[in-house]
């Protein structure tokens, strides 16, 4: 578009019906009017600016969009924002310390070279963290860890180093 041309008049919003949502995200209360069909992943990423949650398939298979809803790992690409109203949502942005210091699980990922492109990593971390933080006993055998990871696709690492990172993190967290 040249400088002299008059800007075209473009629409600003859709005509989607809206609904009010109020939820807690990473300990902070948020409320908004959102399209009733807006996915939780889009809400987190584009309404709240928490772009650490990634979207890999939008059909609930790859696990990149995993967040915690009321302490349980969940696919934010298969959840509508309105469904999360009233819930407590945790995303990857809540995992490191305020000063940026890495959580033992994040440290373990770095130590073990358990990430390459880093796109699946936030979903992996949230899934693993929900297991590490749960009261249920964890099976930390090779097979048990791989089973825990079997809802998250990674295309870069071949998983071996992620398995090692889970083991290291579990040890570190048990020692605390």
């Amino acid at each position: 578009m040249n400088r002299g041309t008059i800007r075209p008049r473009l629409p600003a919003t859709s005509i989607d019906p809206k609904a009010a949502v109020a939820l807690t995200v990473n300990g902070e209360k948020v409320s908004a009017e959102v399209s009733v069909r807006m996915l939780l992943s889009d809400f987190l990423r584009h309404e709240l600016g928490l772009t650490g949650t990634h979207v890999g398939c939008e059909h609930g298979v790859c696990g990149a969009c995993t967040v915690m809803i009321d302490g349980v790992s969940a696919r934010s690409c298969l959840t509508f924002a309105v469904q999360a109203s009233g819930a407590e949502v945790r995303t990857i942005e809540s995992v490191a310390a305020e000063d940026g210091g890495l959580h033992p699980l994040q440290e373990a990922f770095r130590d073990c070279h358990a990430l390459q492109c880093g796109y699946c990593t936030p979903g992996m971390i949230m899934n693993i963290l929900s297991n590490l933080e749960s009261d249920r006993p964890m099976d930390l055998s090779e097979e048990g860890i791989r089973d825990m990871l079997s809802g998250n696709l990674c295309r870069c690492t071949g998983y071996q180093n992620i398995v090692a990172a889970v083991r290291q993190a579990a040890d570190a967290m048990a020692a605390r």
């Binding site: 928490l50 772009t51 650490g52 949650t53 995303t91 990857i92 942005e93 995992v95 490191a96 940026g100 890495l102 994040q106 990922f109 770095r110 990430l115 880093g118 796109y119 990593t121 936030p122 971390i125």
Partner: peptide, 10 residues
Amino acid sequence: IDPQLLRGEG
């Protein structure tokens, strides 16, 4: 690059 990616700051 890891700390940035691990914190969700990619």
